[in-house]
């Protein structure tokens, strides 16, 4: 049986990464401005207005689209930067913006009705009715679904929702409802919603303890690695904690999502696009992962099942997983 060829939406944190993604076969590259208007506001990362213009000029002639993530939440009294980002996105001709805040969506729908609006995963809309709300009120045409849904749940949403759906297929996993998590700000005072960063690097310290390394986030110890033990991102939800007397990865093991074998199922479920996480990753990673995913998408479109090969070395904890899609945790 032949299945629809899914759109491959790939991350870029720098112009070099964008070119790497386009060259490796990305249908679409998503990126953010170099400020607090997006949820990957990392030091040295992201695009200036000029760089975005150049990015579009590189991508469009090569048949790739560019989406701009404006997916953090404006603080009261300071909505200006987000509105400016929306205006600039419209002016520069991005193919869509990815938004999570109701106020920003409302502004865009009224001011730039022709600018395509996608609902960010940061809005954590996990039910067809939530998508219906965003569609009816703000005319969104697509939603990025949370990383915690099973394939049957994805299918239910894709079938019932009045908009296209996009799901994560590869990269870091977020076990919490995204955009509704204050764990980082509880420990550091900064969160994806308020500052565009989760567990900001400025608050992370690796403290050597002989052979071991202690990982500190703000005032808290969030992990301790033995020498040679694989590690993951220093985010709170991937830390090791004690509950009921024993230490474990209580929330999430340090693993990455690799749902390549599930692409045929996702396509059959009516999903429209596949998203790769990782705007913070280097261009070497982007080139390799986009290339592998391109191959997987083509395989699935030809009716074959893609395998998980070759990418484990790039993953957190050195391994990939089918994540929530495979209902194991239920």
């Amino acid at each position: 049986m032949s299945l629809p060829r899914l759109e491959l939406v790939c991350p870029a944190g720098t112009p070099a990464a964008l070119e790497a993604a386009v060259d490796a076969g990305a249908d679409t590259v998503y990126l953010g401005f170099r400020d607090c208007t997006n949820a990957r506001n990392f030091p040295g990362l992201n695009f200036s207005r000029k760089e975005l213009e150049a990015a579009i000029a590189y991508a469009h002639p090569r048949g790739s689209k560019v989406y701009l993530a404006i997916n953090s939440f404006p603080q009261a009294g300071n909505e200006g930067p987000w509105r400016q980002a929306v205006d600039d996105a419209a002016g520069l001709g991005v193919d869509a913006i990815i938004v999570s805040d109701i106020g920003v969506l409302d502004y865009t729908a009224r001011r730039h009705p022709d600018l395509r609006r996608h609902l960010s995963v940061q809005a954590s809309a996990a039910h067809p009715l939530a998508l219906a709300y965003y569609h009816r009120n703000f005319g969104i045409t697509r939603a990025v679904l949370p990383r915690v849904l099973t394939v049957p749940q994805v299918k239910e949403i894709a079938t019932e929702a009045p908009v296209e759906t996009e799901v994560f297929v590869y990269g870091g996993m977020c076990p919490m409802a995204e955009g509704r998590c204050a764990l980082s700000s509880y420990a550091t005072g900064r969160s994806p919603n308020t500052a565009g960063v989760c567990s900001p690097a400025s608050h992370v310290r690796y403290v050597p303890e002989g052979e071991r390394v202690q990982v500190r986030l703000g005032d808290f110890t969030i992990n301790r690695f033995e020498s040679g033990e694989p590690s993951g991102y220093p985010t709170l939800c991937k830390g090791r904690f004690k509950a009921r007397g024993h230490a474990s990865y209580l929330f999430e093991d340090p693993v990455s999502l690799d749902a390549r074998p599930l692409i045929p199922e996702l396509a059959a479920a009516g999903v429209k696009a596949l998203k790769i996480e990782g705007r913070q990753r280097g261009r070497a990673y982007i080139a390799q992962v986009v290339g592998a995913l391109r191959e997987a998408v083509e395989k699935a479109a030809a009716g074959r099942t893609p395998e998980t090969t070759s990418l484990a070395a790039l993953s957190e904890g050195g391994r990939g997983t089918g994540g929530a899609y495979r209902k194991d945790w239920r």
Binding site: G77, D106, G179
Partner: peptide
Amino acid sequence: VAALPLLTGKPHVIGPYINVYNESTLAR
């Protein structure tokens, strides 16, 4: 937000789990 379509048009309350961070969202 999935609860809102069932409540829109009737007086209701928004709890702390819906992201109301700014004036525009509050107005909505």
